[in-house]
């Protein structure tokens, strides 16, 4: 599926924080390319910098070193307005306005394209309609997001990012707080969106089993190094074996999942 040029290209990226003149590095250097229509997951133990990576890619957090290229242009060269039409995000934080309905929330995704008043053109309205249809949200469109279940809300938030119509969508742990069925549902939904609309989707997750089954590419973040590739070759390289201390759980490369040591 490697067609054309990469939507997102990351070279020798060093992430971390800059505190009192000292650079505190979170993880080893990160290298990867993502192409149109690819679904990719970032996995790794807690505190390894999954969220920092996403924040860095979204331009919120400055990198310590390396290059990030979005659509053949350096990420640094984007203005906030330009970036809004190239990259959309789905965060874990709660929406403060519980009164917003699904349709209103999704329509807010059209803001980079609307006029100074934010009124929706015919194109904007049809985009919102098609997103509602695609994500099976039609019967929810008038429901206040404060009254939705976690799974419904997550679908609406993905819909909002989709309405922003950007080549790259970043999601921070989109399946946390969800039950196993809805986890699988969101994974499949993201996969369908990526493959059907040729958008590139990158998300962080703790669901390594699901990611192995459904993602095109996986980035395995570890304190010293980062592995990247399709799930099968990562399993062959043994990237998942060293992910966690081996005293409690062990990666079973035949089933592609973790087993508890008895």
């Amino acid at each position: 599926m490697t067609e054309g040029y990469p939507v997102l290209s990351v070279k020798d990226l060093l992430m971390g924080y800059h505190t009192s003149g000292e650079n505190i590095q979170v993880s080893g250097s990160v290298n990867f390319d993502l192409f149109p229509g690819e679904l990719a997951a970032v996995v790794g133990p807690n505190g390894v910098g999954k969220s920092t990576l996403l924040r860095t890619l979204a331009g919120v957090h400055p990198p310590l070193g390396g290059d990030i290229t979005l659509n053949n242009r350096s990420l640094k060269s984007y203005s906030a307005k330009d970036l809004a039409t190239n990259l959309s995000i789905v965060l874990t934080e709660k929406i403060p306005a519980g009164n917003l309905t699904a349709a209103e929330l999704i329509a807010l995704g059209r803001q980079p394209y609307t006029n100074w008043l934010g009124s929706l053109s015919e194109t904007d309205k049809s985009v919102v309609r098609s997103v509602l249809e695609k994500l099976d949200l039609k019967e929810l469109h008038n429901k206040a997001c404060g009254a939705m279940s976690d799974g419904q809300l997550q679908r609406v938030m993905i819909g909002r990012a989709l309405a922003q119509d950007t080549p790259l969508i970043l999601l921070d742990e989109p399946t946390s707080h969800l039950d196993i069925y809805h986890k699988a549902y969101i994974f499949k939904l993201l996969r369908t969106i990526a493959h059907d609309t040729k958008k590139t989707i990158l998300f962080s997750s703790h669901e390594i089993d699901l990611a192995i089954q459904l993602c095109d590419k996986i980035l395995v973040l570890q304190p010293r190094e980062a592995g990247f590739g399709d799930p099968c070759s990562l399993i062959e390289q043994g990237s998942f074996q060293s992910l966690f201390p081996s005293d409690l759980i062990k990666f079973d490369s035949r089933s592609g999942s973790f087993r508890i040591k008895k």
């Binding site: 970036l83 809004a84 990259l87 929406i95 306005a97 929330l105």
Partner: peptide, 12 residues
């Protein structure tokens, strides 16, 4: 209404 982070990602 979406919070400052989302507002920023919408180009604000």
């Amino acid at each position: 209404l979406l919070g400052e982070n989302y507002a920023k990602s919408l180009g604000m």
